[in-house]
């Protein structure tokens, strides 16, 4: 696996911490998923912060704070600064949202915030689209990893634009990339890893499953299978059949 800001992740799975039925089920889902990264956020103090932080630290995974819900570069930058102090990490999953229905990134605000934060020593994980030009600009601005969406956040639609994602992957072969958002099934995760993406980040697909812990395990196996398959250099598909059993030596009957 490619190194992300100097860290080689143990597994190609990043898991969100939101919307679990209970903290105990969240912890169990993390164990089942073998996730190497947990995403977290900052919200107005309500007395639960320390307890939640203690649980997260107990998971023994890397912590990736997000700027979820920010609609401007300014808001995202301030949130990132606050997150760095609270979570004691330079990592930031940078979300600058452009539209409430699709939760798609605002490319202009994202680029502005990436440049400002990278210059300020942050290790930025920009939540972006599959747009190749934007990707180049984000890398120029100081991002060393990209997080293209699979589909809109929480939609469970999988890889909406396989062509675009494949092109993006091929355009920047040395850049670590994580498919973030939109996955619904383990097969989507396997697909992403088979295509050469380095990891997947998911949350809703696990917590909205009838059995979140079992689904977390299913995603772990799928991501692992996908990564293994990519490393094994898959065959090229072809239109016509090709017999796998030798033709030579077949009886004349």
């Amino acid at each position: 696996m490619r190194t992300i800001y100097g860290i080689t992740l143990d597994t190609p799975l990043m898991l969100g911490t939101a919307q679990y039925p209970s903290p105990a089920i969240m912890a169990e889902a993390f164990r089942a998923s073998r996730a190497s990264v947990a995403t977290v956020s900052l919200r107005r103090e309500g007395g639960q912060g320390q307890a939640f932080w203690d649980i997260i630290r107990g998971l023994g995974v890397h912590v990736l704070p997000n700027t979820a819900g920010c609609y401007s570069a300014r808001e995202a930058i301030t949130t990132a600064q606050m997150a760095r102090e609270v979570f004691e990490t330079n990592w930031i999953k940078l979300e600058v949202i452009g539209h409430a229905d699709t939760l798609q990134p605002d490319p202009f605000g994202l680029l502005e915030a990436t440049a400002t934060l990278a210059a300020d020593g942050f290790e930025v994980f920009p939540y972006t689209t599959e747009d190749q030009v934007l990707a180049a600009r984000l890398l120029d601005a100081g991002a060393r990893v990209l997080m293209p969406w699979g589909a809109p956040i929480g939609s469970g639609l999988g890889l909406n634009n396989r062509y675009g994602l494949k092109t993006l992957r091929a355009a920047f072969p040395d850049v670590p990339m994580v498919i973030d958002a939109g996955l619904g099934l383990p097969s989507h995760a396997a697909d992403a890893l088979e295509m050469g993406f380095d990891a997947v980040l998911l949350n809703t697909a696990v917590v909205q499953a009838g059995d979140p812990v079992a689904m977390a395990r299913a995603f772990a196996l799928a991501a692992q299978a996908g990564a293994l398959a990519h490393g094994a250099d898959p065959m090229a598909p072809r239109d016509m059949a090709a017999p796998s059993t030798p033709v030579l030596g077949k009886a004349w009957l």
């Binding site: 969100g16 911490t17 956020s41 107005r44 912060g49 997000n66 600064q81 956040i153």
Partner: peptide, 25 residues
């Protein structure tokens, strides 16, 4: 920043945000 809280003065009508760790995706 934490280190600047002692020296950061308040004025009437100021908006103070106090944020804590929370679940996120």
């Amino acid at each position: 920043p934490k280190a600047a809280r002692d020296d950061t003065r308040l004025a009437p009508g100021d908006r103070l945000e106090v944020l804590a760790p929370m679940q996120g995706g």
